[in-house]
Each structure stands twice: as C-alpha cells, then as structure tokens.
C-alpha cells in the first residue's frame, strides 16, 4: 500500500465528462471505455492505484460531486 492517496468514484453519480481525468496531475484516472453505468455513460475510475497522491483536484473539479478522496494519514 504505497499510494499516498486513493479515490472512490460513484459509478451512477458520474456523468463521464472527463474533467477529473483531464485535471489529475498524475494521470491516474481514466474513463471506463468498455463499460457504462445505467445512464449509458462511460464512468471514471482509478486506473492506476499506485500513483494517486490524494490531492483532491479530481473531486474539486467534478461538477457532480461523484468523487470521495482519502489521503495517507501523516501521523503513523
């Protein structure tokens, strides 16, 4: 568990706009091109779990508040 952060993205809450994918500084998000949610939209998912830094840029830009972000606790 090396990653500094991770995100949970609501499959049904996502509209597949791609703004989170565009703004992730480490490019660890992708749109699921081989699947859709019940609205027929290609939802976003964490495609590279190792590199997420938990910066929350994706969640801040997500219009539909579909992303929850966690970051590694400082005090271990």
């Amino acid at each position: 568990m090396a990653a500094k952060g991770f995100v949970e993205i609501s499959v049904e809450g996502c509209k597949g706009c791609g703004l989170c994918v565009h703004h992730c500084p480490v490019k660890c998000l992708s749109l699921k091109m081989d699947d859709t949610n019940s609205f027929g939209l290609h939802y976003a998912y964490l495609s590279n779990e190792e590199t997420c830094i938990g910066c929350a840029n994706c969640a801040v830009i997500c219009p539909d508040a579909a992303i929850t972000v966690y970051r590694k606790s400082k005090a271990v």
């Binding site: 568990m1 991770f6 938990g54 929350a56 969640a59 801040v60 508040a65 992303i67 972000v69 970051r71």
Partner: peptide
C-alpha cells in the same frame, strides 16, 4: 475506508 488513510474530500 482503508487503514491509515483519512478523508480529505467528500460531497
């Protein structure tokens, strides 16, 4: 939530 992680952004 996974152990050792804290929430930084939620709806």
């Amino acid at each position: 939530m996974k152990d050792g992680y804290e929430l930084v952004y939620k709806r």
